[in-house]
Nucleic acid binder design. Structure first.
Lengths: 124, 124
DNA sequence: CCGACGCTACTACAAGTGTCGAAGGGCGCA
DNA sequence: TGCGCCCTTCGACACTTGTAGTAGCGTCGG
């Protein structure tokens, strides 16, 4: 279940708030994307076909709800990246992130914090 | 500079060994992919157009060399993933990976090791 | 010097993605 | 009850990706 760039944007909106009508989703993303209403509608319907959204008609309006969690979608995306670019090894991705010189001090600090939390959770 | 699934496979082969002729690249990926020689050739040429490969004719054969490092390509892929799926926050990706219940014991151990290494590198 | 074989270059085509416009139908207000 | 407005449905088009065939040229062996 791979999502394209544009599809992620719509899904994000729906994970934030759902069920939502096409008009509502359009309202949520229009400013950032500049998409026409019909563009949003088309993509929403394609996402329904793909099975990652469910639509329910209320009166003459469709309301969309995700059928997959953001967590699941993220996992699947990470998985795909690791498969493509890191030889299937999640450790490779870790190594890349921690090695990367482009890692900012702030990001490094975040990682430290996360690690501390992980330690605490793992130890007891 | 985004690479598709198939393009990653070819680039991986070239990062392993380059310059390489189309025939050599084909040899390297044919078993795993089943692609015809011309398929590989077409994709290589598209990668040249994209600017991620450079080709040099030697006699009547083209030899291909990456113009971007695997590291750079990986960074860019991680970047893209983070932008799409983690709200642009690299920390979000970290959190996802460390939270993920699907994280195996082995992966957890790897992470611990990497963290230890990072600590050692960051402290002094 | 000539032919065969390999390599390149060009073309093709289907599916997926990004983007909309046009047209038609029904709900709600006057 | 009728009209308008908004929503849906369909279709369209260009570009990318995956996948490959064909034709023609040049190189090397004989």
């Amino acid at each position: 279940m791979q999502l394209s760039e544009a599809e992620w944007k719509l899904m994000q909106a729906l994970w934030r708030s759902s069920p939502a009508s096409a008009r509502e989703v359009h309202g949520a993303v229009a400013a950032a994307t500049g998409w026409a209403y019909t563009t949003v509608k088309t993509m929403l319907d394609r996402l329904v076909e793909k099975g990652v959204l469910r639509s329910k008609m209320r009166s003459n309006q469709a309301f969309y709800t995700p059928t997959v969690s953001q967590e699941a979608a993220r996992s699947s995306a990470v998985q795909a990246l690791v498969a493509r670019a890191f030889d299937g090894k999640l450790g490779g991705l870790f190594a890349h992130m921690t090695d990367d010189d482009a890692l900012s001090a702030k990001e490094r600090a975040e990682l430290e914090a996360l690690l501390a939390k992980l330690e605490k959770k793992a130890k007891p």
